[in-house]
Write a protein that binds this DNA or RNA. Structure first.
Lengths: 245, 245
DNA sequence: CGTGCCGTTGACGATATTCAAGTGCAGTGG
DNA sequence: CCACTGCACTTGAATATCGTCAACGGCACG
C-alpha cells in the first residue's frame, strides 16, 4: 500500500525499512470509510482514537451558537489529528469528510507501540510542530491579509502540502473545496470568494475549474499572497537522523 | 517560590510533592529577565531552548514582508512555548516581551528529566492540547466574529486564563495590552479597536482603565462574545491521575 | 519643558456583506 | 429522451463594517 504518512514524514527524515513496516501496520488497523460531508468526530463527544487520513480530504470546523461556521484546518492524506487527544474529556470541535474518505482509527495502545522508535517519534513531533505552525499562519492570514491575498495564500499552502505527499500534478492539483468551503475557511462570504477567484483568474494566477486547480506561475502567486514557506519546515530538517538502509 | 506552571497544571490534575519539586527545579534553571517590548526569540533563528514564562506577559507575532504585523498568541505566567521546538532548524515566528519579563530557558536535557514522571508528562500534554485549542479558537474569532464580539471574546479568554493561574482580582485583572496590541491581535485597526472599546464601555460590559480591566458581568460578556469555555478544558479532566499526598 | 507614546475624534473612502435573482450542470426518475 | 431537482457558481445593487488619514489631548518620563 502507498502510505501517505510515510511520504509526509520522509520530508523530515529518511525512515528505515522497519520504520516503514511499523507505519504500514499502523495505517492498516481500524480502517473506516465515510461518504462526503459526514462527520467523523463531533464537538462534545468523548475522543476515541487518533485518526489518520489515508485517502480523500477532511476538515476541522467549529460552529457558533447562532449557526456561523468556521473551517479551522484541512486534512490531506497522511495527516494525523490530535496525538494524545484521549487525554481530553470531550472534543472542542468537529471533523467532517470533504470527499469520500478512507481513514483509520488508531487506538491508544496501538499507537503507543511506535513510542519505541525514536526516529518515528521525532518525525511525529516534527509533524505536529508543523501542524501548529500552519494553524498560526491561518491566524496571520485571517488577521492581516485581504481577500485576494488570503485566498492566494491558502491555495499556495494547499499546493505545497499536496506536493509534499506527491499528490500534485506538476502545476495543478485536485482540490475538492467548494467556494462555500473556501468562504468558511477564509472568513469571507461565498459571494466575495467568487469575485476574488474571478480576479485571480483574470490576472492569470489561478485557474480553478471544477475540482482542479492550476497555478501557471507559482512564484507570482506566492508573491501576491506574501507566502513564505518557512513555516512548513520542508527542508529535511531531520536529515541528521536519516536511516542508512 | 510561587510557580505559575504548577498552578496551571493543577487545573488538570493534582500533583504530588515530588512532582512539584521537579517543576520547581525546572522553573529555577536558566532564569532570564527582559525589558518590555524586547524580542526573546526571533524568526529565522535556531531554536535554543524551551521557554517558560514566570512573571509578566509576552506574545508571539509574525511580520509580513511589507511590515504588517499579527500577534498570534499571548503568553501569561505559567505558559510554555513549544515543547520539542529544537527539532526545527529555524523559528518561523518571533516572541517578544509585553511587559518586563522573567522567564527561564530550559535546555533540552533538563527538560527530558521530567519525562520520567508520567503524571507531569500527561499534564504537559494536556497543556499543549489546550494551547492548540486556543490557537484554533483564534482562527474562529478572526474568521467569524465581528469587532465587538472579537474583542469581547479575547477579553473573556484572557480572564479565564489569568484566573487559571490565580492572577485575577475577583471581577478584574491586570492586562498590559495597549489598544495597538489589541488591534494587531484581532486583525483590526487601532482606531476601530478604540471605538469598539468605547461601545463595550457604553454598554457597561468592560471597563478598561489603563492596564486594569474590569468585567462587571462576565456572563453578559460571554454571551455577547459567543464565548464557550469548553476549549480551555478547565474541568479537571485529569482528576483520575490525582496524586494522593 | 520638550518628547514620545497612548488614547481619542471626525470625515471620508475602501472593502466586504447582504439580499435576491438567475445560470449551468450533473444526477434522478418518469 | 426529457423534465425535474439540487447544488455550485455567478451577477447586480444597496448597505454595513471597518480602514485611512490627519489631527489633537493627556500623561509619563527624562
Amino acid at each position: 500500500m502507498n502510505n501517505p504518512l510515510i511520504r509526509k514524514l520522509e520530508q523530515f527524515t529518511r525512515l528505515s525499512g522497519s520504520d516503514r513496516t511499523i507505519l504500514d501496520e499502523l495505517a492498516s488497523t481500524g480502517i473506516r470509510r465515510l461518504s462526503a460531508r459526514r462527520d467523523l468526530v463531533r464537538e462534545g463527544e468523548k475522543p476515541r482514537a487518533i485518526n489518520l487520513m489515508l485517502d480523500g480530504w477532511a476538515f476541522r470546523y467549529k460552529m457558533l451558537e447562532d449557526g456561523r461556521r468556521q473551517i479551522i484546518s484541512f486534512f490531506l492524506p497522511g495527516d494525523l489529528c490530535d496525538l494524545n487527544i484521549y487525554l481530553l474529556r470531550e472534543m472542542d470541535h468537529s471533523i467532517a469528510a470533504l470527499t469520500p474518505l478512507t481513514f483509520c482509527e488508531i487506538p491508544r495502545d496501538t499507537f503507543e507501540q511506535v513510542t519505541e522508535r525514536p526516529r518515528i517519534v521525532q518525525a511525529l513531533w516534527w509533524d505536529s510542530l508543523v501542524a501548529a505552525a500552519i494553524q498560526r499562519e491561518w491566524t496571520v492570514n485571517l488577521g492581516q491579509r485581504n481577500a485576494l491575498e488570503r485566498i492566494s495564500h491558502l491555495i499556495c499552502e494547499l499546493f505545497f502540502r499536496i506536493r509534499g505527499v506527491g499528490l500534485n500534478d506538476d502545476t495543478s492539483f485536485f482540490c475538492p473545496i467548494t467556494q462555500n468551503d473556501l468562504a468558511e475557511a477564509t472568513g469571507m462570504t461565498s459571494v466575495h470568494v467568487n469575485r476574488t477567484l474571478q480576479e485571480l483568474r483574470g490576472r492569470g494566477l489561478v485557474h480553478w475549474k471544477g475540482k482542479q486547480v492550476e497555478i501557471p506561475d507559482l512564484g507570482a502567486l506566492c508573491q501576491l499572497a506574501l507566502f513564505n514557506q518557512n513555516y512548513l519546515h520542508l527542508d529535511r530538517e531531520g536529515a541528521h537522523l536519516d536511516a542508512n538502509d
